[in-house]
Design a protein around this nucleic acid. Structure first.
Lengths: 142, 142
DNA sequence: TATTGTTATACTCTATAACTATA
DNA sequence: TATAGTTATAGAGTATAACAATA
């Protein structure tokens, strides 16, 4: 096999991302939450209550898009909104007990295709994926 | 900093994928093509003419979805469809000269945000990303 | 004047379902 | 009966634009 060109490495990487998304979607049942929703839940658990504007900035999303994500989580009863005590414009978003319970159960690999398949990799490969995630997060800031 | 839990590594990885997609979209101008479209062009260049059904199987997409992608590429004049010589059901999709020219210019980092930022990484980090891509492609087959 | 949030609208990517034509 | 492809429709995940309330 001849060595891959840089260009074909990029194509293969792009290909992998596309496959991952479609595979993840196919594995997602109606009772599951989306990738963005799960990241938002994790953030709320880790950093405490926040506003849609703040979360939108953190995720590089438009506030309106984050608003839609939050509205969806609220509809599922996973988060609730409370008026900010002093700033009348803001609404604080926080986890409900149901949301906290879901976060706990998400570590359970059976619930989640991606968690499951990554858990089955050997440690080196897991580290490669996580390291790639770090690199990507840094890349995106440019 | 305490060591990350497996769960939070997964969240961070998921987060990175979401950021990558949004960043890529933001960097995409109206004259650019999508990730799926670029992968399809690369495949046609590498493996020669193919049908939508075959390409759909290769990309783990539904034939209808691939049909839409191909229709979009055809509208841009990058591919053309020719009836299969013996099987009247099939249409062979092949690159036009314009499509081949675009493929050539895609290696030009200035044209493409993702290519550009990856090109600027050091070799080790590039290898980590490409290795992660390989792992993902393998993961998806399960 | 800037910020938070909402509503309305639209686009991309992909899916499901129903169909026609051909094998 | 199975396969290739088309058309219609829908949903998720964004985006842009216009607006109201508050700071």
């Amino acid at each position: 096999m001849p060595p891959k060109t840089f260009d074909s490495e990029i194509v293969d990487f792009t290909h992998a991302i596309g496959l991952l998304l479609r595979r993840r979607r196919a594995a997602t049942g109606s009772e599951d939450i989306t990738m963005t929703e799960s990241v938002v839940l994790a953030r709320l658990e880790k950093d405490g209550p926040s506003t849609t504007a703040d979360m939108a900035r953190a995720e590089s999303m438009k506030p309106q898009s984050m608003g839609a994500t939050v509205a969806s989580l609220e509809e599922m009863g996973l988060v609730e909104r409370k008026p900010h005590p002093t700033d009348g414009r803001q609404m604080n978003i926080q986890l409900t007990s149901k949301g906290r319970a879901l976060r706990k159960s998400m570590g359970d690999a059976k619930r989640n295709w991606l968690t499951k398949v990554i858990a089955e990799l050997d440690k080196d490969e897991q580290q490669t994926l996580f390291k790639a995630g770090e690199i990507i997060r840094r890349l995106v800031e440019q």
